[in-house]
Design a protein around this nucleic acid. Structure first.
Lengths: 242, 242
DNA sequence: CGATTTTTTGACATTCATCAATCTGGGTGG
DNA sequence: CCACCCAGATTGATGAATGTCAAAAAATCG
C-alpha cells in the first residue's frame, strides 16, 4: 500500500536530498487512497479545505469555465504531483480540479503537513519549491497562451509533458501515453478542438509527432522543441535546491 | 529609512496576523535600498541568486521574449510585492524581471530569510502564501490569455490592478496611477499595441474607463467587472490564512 | 524647441473560430 | 457475434477577431 506514493518520492528525490527519515515521515502522513472516474470534479473551488490531495495515477487538471461556455485548463497534473499543495496556505482553491481520466488519489491532512513542515524545515522548503515550480509552469503557459501560434503551443505542451513524465518514469524516447481528447488539448492551449485537429495534422505531416490512440509518438524531438521554442529550464530539473 | 517597507507590512497584515516580533524581524532583515531607472533588467534569468528583492515603489514585471520578437509579461509587480520570493527555493529565476517605470527596491539575503522562516514557521507560511497568491494570479491570467476577448482581457486587468493597489493604499474609487504604455498593456494581455489602442477607445466609448496621462479613471466599476468577468476571489483578500 | 516615443487611425492580411457534415472506432445490449 | 450507438476525429466552407503595415498626430523629454 505504501509503495503507491513512490512516484511522488521519486519526484522529490529528483529535486533534492530527501533523508529516509523524511521519507518515512511523508509515507506515514499519506492516507485515504481512493479511485475517481474520469470527468469528475475532484476538488471544488472556494470551499474550505483541511487536507491536500496527491495524484497517484491518472491525469487531473485545474481549470476555469468562462461565460461563453468555454473552459481554460491552467495546469495538468501528472502522477506524483500534489494537486492542491497550495491549499495548505491558501485554505481554499481559486479554481476547481477535475479528473480527465480515471484517477487514483490519496490525501494528507493540513495538520500533518503542518507538523511535517515545522519539524523538518528542509521539507517545508522542498514543498514550497514544489508550489513555486507550479507557478513556473503557469508562467510558461502564459507565454504560450499569449504569444505563440497554435503549432508552437501544442509543440511546447508535448515537450513539457515529455519531460515531466520522464521524471516519474512514464515516458521514454519514443513517446508517452496521454489519454486526453483533442478538446482537452484545446482547453490547455486556448484553441478550439477543430483547430487542434488541423494543427495535429500539420505536426504529423511535418514528421514531428503523432497523437493517436491516446499516445504521443515523437518522431523528431529536436524539431518539436524548435517548433515549440521549448527550453526546459523553467522545469528546474537540476538537483540541489532547498 | 525603515518606514519604506510599510507597504509590504501592510500587505502582510491584510492577510493574517503579524506580531510586532515578526515585524521587527522582517524590518531588520531588509537592506540595500536602491533606485532603478525605467526599462532596466533588474534580475536576469537563470543566474544563481542569494537574495530576494522587494519592490518599494514603481512597477516591475516578469516577462519572456519570444522568437518573433514579441514579449509576454507574465506578472506585474506593485509596491510592497516581493518580486522574486520564489528565488528563495528555486535559487534562480526562470524569467527575467525588468522595470517598467523608475523603481525603488530593497533586498533580503536568502540566509536571513532562511533564519526568519525557520524561527517563525508562521512567517514561513505567510511567505509561502505570498508565492501561492502569485501563482493564483498567473492562473487567472492564463484564463484571460486563453479564453477572453481583447475587451475582457483589458477590463479584467484593470480590475485586478485596482484591487491590488487598494490593498496598499495606492488606489481609490475614482481610479489609480498606472505609468505604463499601451504596448506594455499589450504585452500583459497578448495583444498588439494597436489593438490595445482600439479596445481602450471602445472601453472609453462605453463609459467604463479612461486610460490617459498614466492614469486609469474608472467611470463604471460594475460595468468594468462585467466586461472582464471579474471575480476577485482569486486574490484571496480575506484575512486569516496561515 | 527639435527629437523621440507614444498614441491614433486607416487599409488590408492572417489566424483561428464557427457551423455543419461525415467518418471512425470502441463499447454495449440483445 | 452483430447491429447499433455515441463520443471523438476529421474535413470543408465561411466569418470574426486580431495582427500587420504605414502614416500622421500628439505627447514627452532632454
Amino acid at each position: 500500500m505504501r509503495a503507491v506514493i513512490e512516484r511522488h518520492l521519486t519526484k522529490l528525490r529528483a529535486r533534492d536530498f530527501v533523508s529516509p527519515d523524511h521519507e518515512n515521515a511523508i509515507r506515514e502522513s499519506i492516507r485515504d487512497y481512493r479511485d475517481i472516474p474520469a470527468d469528475r470534479t475532484v476538488i471544488r473551488a472556494n470551499v474550505r479545505l483541511d487536507h491536500c490531495t496527491l495524484l497517484v495515477d491518472g491525469v487531473l487538471c485545474r481549470y476555469k469555465d468562462v461565460r461563453s461556455g468555454e473552459r481554460q485548463i491552467t495546469e495538468l497534473h501528472l502522477p506524483g504531483d500534489f494537486v492542491d499543495l497550495h491549499s495548505f496556505t491558501l485554505k481554499r482553491l481559486d479554481q476547481p480540479v477535475m479528473s480527465l481520466t480515471p484517477c487514483r488519489v490519496a490525501s494528507i491532512p493540513h495538520d500533518k503537513l503542518r507538523l511535517l513542515t515545522e519539524r523538518h524545515p528542509h521539507l517545508a522548503r522542498l514543498y514550497w519549491f514544489a508550489t513555486n515550480l507550479d507557478a513556473a509552469i503557469h508562467r510558461e503557459w502564459e507565454v504560450s497562451l499569449g504569444r505563440r501560434t497554435a503549432r508552437a503551443k501544442l509543440s511546447a505542451l508535448f515537450c513539457e509533458l515529455l519531460m515531466r513524465l520522464q521524471v516519474v518514469g512514464l515516458a521514454d524516447e519514443s513517446g508517452y501515453d496521454l489519454p486526453l481528447t483533442q478538446a482537452d488539448l484545446g482547453d490547455c492551449t486556448g484553441l478550439t478542438a477543430v483547430h487542434v485537429n488541423r494543427t495535429l495534422k500539420e505536426l504529423r505531416g511535418d514528421q514531428l509527432i503523432t497523437f493517436q490512440n491516446n499516445r504521443v509518438t515523437i518522431h523528431d524531438l529536436a524539431g518539436l522543441r524548435r517548433a515549440g521554442e521549448f527550453d526546459a529550464t523553467y522545469l528546474y530539473l537540476e538537483r540541489q535546491h532547498c
